[in-house]
Each structure stands twice: as C-alpha cells, then as structure tokens.
Design a protein around this nucleic acid. Sequence first.
DNA 1: GTCAATTTGACAATGTGTTGTCAAATTGAC
DNA 2: GTCAATTTGACAACACATTGTCAAATTGAC
Lengths: 171, 171
Amino acid sequence: MRQAGAPSAEVRSRRRAALTDLILDVFRLNGVLLASGDALVADLGLTSARWQVLGAIALAPAPLPVAHLARTMGLTRQAVQRSVDELRADGLVRLEPNPHHRRAALVRMTEPGEAAYRAASRRQETWADALAADLPPEIIEAADGLLRALRARLAGPDPSPATAPDTLETC
Amino acid sequence: MRQAGAPSAEVRSRRRAALTDLILDVFRLNGVLLASGDALVADLGLTSARWQVLGAIALAPAPLPVAHLARTMGLTRQAVQRSVDELRADGLVRLEPNPHHRRAALVRMTEPGEAAYRAASRRQETWADALAADLPPEIIEAADGLLRALRARLAGPDPSPATAPDTLETC
DNA sequence: GTCAATTTGACAATGTGTTGTCAAATTGAC
DNA sequence: GTCAATTTGACAACACATTGTCAAATTGAC
C-alpha cells in the first residue's frame, strides 16, 4: 500500500497538469472578468479599478487616507493614488483634512460618487445572479477555498493582514 | 417541494455571495501568480508575458506569424507584437521570411531562446509540484471546471476557438 | 483579371498595475 | 526633547494589456 506522504509519479503528474490548467484558466478568467466589469459600469463613469476603490471606501467604517485604502485592497499606494486622482477629477470623491495627520487626507465619496456606486452594486447583483444561475453554491465555495489555499501558499504566512481584521470580513 | 428552476432567495443569495468571493479571489490569485511567475524566471531574462509567448511558439507544430500567435494565446496582436519585439532584441527569438506571406514573418526561437524556455519549464515543474503538494487532483480539476464554465458564460458562445476543440468540451 | 474585404504589422494613445526616489509628516526609542 | 525610522503623498519610469488608425499584402467574390 502506498503511504500518504509518497504519492505515485502518476498522481503527481496528474496534479501538476491539473494545476497548470487551473492557473492558465485563472489568467483567462481574470481577463474576461475585468472586461465584463468595465462594460458593466462604463456608462456610470466607472471602470473596474475605480469601482474597486469606491468599494473599499464604502466598506470602511470611516474615511481613510489613500495609503490605508491601498493596504486594505492589497494594491500599491501609487495605483490607488492614481485612481483616487481620477475619481476626484470626476467629482466622485473628495478629500478632507485629516485631524490626525496633515499629509494623509481622508478620501470620502461625494453624493454623485455614492449614486454611481449604488447603481454599480445593483447591476452587479443581477449580473452575478445571471452568471451563477444553476451553479451549486457548494461547488463555488469549494473552488474559492482552493484559490485561497493556493494564494496562501504563494504569498507566504500572512501577506495581506488587511484582509483579516474588520474590513473584508463584512463583505 | 421546490422546483429546480425556482431556487429560494436564500440559495440565490448564498450563491451570489459565493460567486463574489470567488471573483475577488480570482483577481488576487491572478496578481500573486503573475508575481510568482516573474520571480521564477527573472534571472533567465524572461517575464511572465515573454514566457507565455515562448510557450505558444514551443507548442505550435511550425513557426507562426505574430497575429497567429496572438489568436492562439487569446491576446491582441499588438500585445504579442511588443513581447516579440523585446524577445527579438534579446536574441531569444528571430524572424524568418514567410514564403506564403511577405508581411507576416514567422517567429522562431533561437538556441538561447530554447535554452531559456527549457530552463523555465523545468523550474515550473518543481514549482507546481510544491504548490500543489497534497492537494487532491479531483479538487483542482473541479475548480478548473468551474472557472471554465464561468468564462464560457461570460465570453459568449465561442470566443477562443484556438482553445476550444478538445479542451473545453471535456469539462 | 479586378476590386472590395480581410489580414497583418506599425504606430500612437490610454488604462492599470509595478518599482524607485524624494521630501514632508509622524512615530518611537532613547 | 532629540533624532533615526517609518509612513505618506508626489513624481517619474517602466511592464503589460487594451483600443484605434493606417498602409501594405493577401484573399475571395465576381
């Protein structure tokens, strides 16, 4: 009998092939998801990137500076900074002084920004319903679990502490 | 009893939440995978994008022009063109005249290019083995099947004919 | 054979992310 | 309180993908 810690070359090769396929499909799905998201909110003056920033603002219990938003989202400061600059230019977001830190202004949604975000959220709901129609939740959850496991292995012990505490759990 | 076509609001909402989580994790995993891939082959003079182009060349039975490679890879002509330009500048790839089409030169790997690709493939094998260690192949394959199903729904009837014939049908 | 439609590569602009560097502001060890 | 380390935003450069436009080459209907 085979021991648990010593899988056959056959199993190893099947596993490797399956993982390679999965990875390639993650790349491809990432591409079509971004394209779909952009198309979904384009006429609201949003893109996937800006939408994501609005989401981070909406989920936070209080207005946050750019660097804090970036940590929450797992992106770099600069990437978020650019999106915020654009959102500000379009009037969807505004900066307010931070009493605790003169440089780190707090980002807050304007009324038009909140309206756009609400509209995007409403569309995303029906879009997701249509996309997931007749897929068993268990299958989706199992796949998500695997993706998380892979990400955890790739990123090391705990690379995204911002994911944990209080922000992302609520969504 | 509940009919198959009319899921409860409860199931629908669970499904929606699961799908949203999955999508966010696809984005995150995409990011760490690209970073890992870049790190894996950086010292070979490769990046994820260049590596992918070399892979398409290696898999093709004969040298192909840039536009054909792009279709095979599901990317735009211009994106592949730039990678090919860079690979050519680094001597990993070379263009040869196409007897059937004066403009569409054929892209072929040079000996250094093949050496780099072989080295990258070897590393990828051990990397994938380590990453997939102790994950049951069935789980990986099931997750991959779901990603493919989602992609098929998002992209419409048949958006990537190059991938289709024998890969997508099997899931 | 002719000519419109398609394919191909070149070029430019844009979106989104990265890294690196810098100065100002804040924090913390002492 | 002082001063080094960290955090923050500004700015620049780059990697990778997109779209759009153009001219040359090829293909196909006629």
